[in-house]
Design a binder for these strands. Sequence first.
DNA 1: TCTTTTTATGTAGTTGACTACGCAAATATA
DNA 2: TATATTTGCGTAGTCAACTACATAAAAAGA
Lengths: 163, 163
Amino acid sequence: MENNDFVKELGYLGFTMRLKRISDAMMHEGRRLYSELDVDIEPNWYVIFKLLKSRGAMSVTEIAESIRMAHPSVIHITNKMTDAGYLISEKDPTDSRKRVLDLSARSVKMLPEYEKIWQAGEKGVEKVLKEHNALELISILEDKFFDKGFKERTLEQLKNKKS
Amino acid sequence: MENNDFVKELGYLGFTMRLKRISDAMMHEGRRLYSELDVDIEPNWYVIFKLLKSRGAMSVTEIAESIRMAHPSVIHITNKMTDAGYLISEKDPTDSRKRVLDLSARSVKMLPEYEKIWQAGEKGVEKVLKEHNALELISILEDKFFDKGFKERTLEQLKNKKS
DNA sequence: TCTTTTTATGTAGTTGACTACGCAAATATA
DNA sequence: TATATTTGCGTAGTCAACTACATAAAAAGA
């Protein structure tokens, strides 16, 4: 960080933007990392890989709920993974509305290599965050600001001017 | 948060995605908040408003550096603010490459109202985060993961397999 | 059984970041 | 002074997330 960072000067008002900047920066770093290692996957795919490996085949909506994402986002990600040959998509035989996704043979073959990278990334993050209770803070943020949290809290403050 | 959140199960591996989810959620909440209050501004504009109010007129690149964003992003945001009548754009008389941006009369008129909202939002965030050293943690994240941080740390871990 | 409601998926359109590249003006250098 | 480099801005193209809406199948209810 440079010392002339205006967002930092804004205190708690700058919090959301700083959160976004860090998250965006890490995403872009992830993309650069993969491209430098010549690995043709994208950041965030790892969640789908891990999920399907752990739980087996799942439908679009099941995936969306498991990782708390809107279903169109899941469709977008998994379509790209399917195009890249990492996922297999099949109609559910008992419910023809559903589409069931699972890891392809290519995924099974490549996963060991990719998991090395993810483990290294995790270690790097862990080293920095272990002594700072970072996961605990993230949990609190999720509890307080997911869904209606931030808006409601602000409207509340606008009404009760006293505080 | 629901209890069946797979990303949470991933430990430090899920950290970046959880960061992104929270930051996205807060952004969307912000948009909903403004629309509910019938205010025609967008999340993140507040940083530009605050910056120009505090520092006076600035060029595109100066703004980008002050808030640590890529300059095309700043152009994108400030163009929309200009279209909405909140900013004035003028060529720098001494350097014709530069374009200098400043708050319009409309901004000056509306700012007191908007600042009430931002103050309320800040209070809401502050209430939740005060006892958790959240700003300190954000600073650490910025120090460690901005720019080349995350990629370099991961590559390092990939080499030194021992740790 | 026929109709209504719910569920699962998909598409379209919006927003907000980024990188890569191009162009023109200012500055530095030969 | 002429050329080369740097700087400032802008555009194009990419990607990820969201909401709103559409469609079709399944489930529920009359």
